[in-house]
């Protein structure tokens, strides 16, 4: 709790920073504060938006009392005094991925960059259980931590104009999944037939901050069969 800093994002938003580098401890602190705010919101609280090392708290200035920045920082500070909320065992969501060159056009580049075989890349990408740090870039896009750095690959020098929904990518030490068709600078290594967006439901996304993700490899035949369902 010692390295926490507060800065205004706007008249009605405060960025709470927990440190300058992502870590599991910081990740858990962010989830804790977010949970406490949601369960017992202060008057005027609107929403909390997590990112790697920050939680941004939006509030309605006209409702929140007291109104000054320093008072609001103290209000937020008081949540750290509360006993931690029990966070239930995170959900682990298994996501099938077809690591086929036709769906993962950058598999070769990722393998070559790291002096690995494609089989080894797939093995290293499906091995870990990833943390869903936050969602951003586009609705339902998960920023996942925990990737093996031996498959880290810089972004494409020229971003693609469009990749298909479900495309699984690598950018530096990050990995993620594009939930909808999108321009993409990430290295695309495969595609999932599972939809990460559930726009007719509430909540409207498959993944939420705090979830865990495990990728598993499926064949092109399984992928095609999946799409036909």
């Amino acid at each position: 709790m010692h390295n926490i800093t507060y800065s205004p994002l706007s008249e009605q938003a405060i960025i709470v920073e927990f440190g300058d580098q992502w870590s599991v401890e910081i990740y858990e602190q962010i989830l804790q504060l977010s949970k406490k705010l949601t369960l017992t919101p202060f008057p005027g609280f609107i929403e909390a938006v997590p990112a790697y090392t920050t939680l941004t708290i939006y509030y309605d200035l006209r409702i929140s009392e007291p109104r000054s920045f320093s008072h609001l920082c103290r209000v937020i500070d008081s949540y750290f005094q509360q006993t931690d909320q029990h966070i239930k065992e995170p959900r682990t969501i298994a996501i099938p991925v077809c690591y086929d060159r036709t769906l993962g056009p950058d598999l070769d580049e990722v393998a070559q960059t790291n002096n690995l075989t494609i089989e080894k890349v797939i093995q290293l990408h499906t091995e870990p259980t990833y943390n869903v740090c936050f969602l951003g870039f586009s609705p339902g896009f998960p920023f996942l931590s925990g990737m093996n750095t031996s498959i880290a690959t810089p972004r494409k020098s020229t971003p693609r104009k469009q990749v298909a929904a479900g495309s699984v990518g690598i950018a530096g030490v990050q990995t993620g999944v594009y939930p909808s068709p999108s321009p993409a600078g990430w290295q695309i290594i495969g595609r999932t037939p599972v939809s990460l967006l559930k726009l007719t439901e509430d909540p409207p996304t498959l993944l939420h901050p705090g979830d865990r993700v495990q990728f598993y490899s499926i064949t092109k035949q399984q992928f095609d069969a999946w799409e036909e369902k």
Binding site: L9, S10, A13, Y52, T53
Partner: peptide, 26 residues
Amino acid sequence: LTEATTFGTIQVPPSGEAIILMADRQ
């Protein structure tokens, strides 16, 4: 490190040319 932005945020990419984020921002 990626963090929250809001309506009216003036961000500056490495090119040095400012962008103001509006209603449909990420």
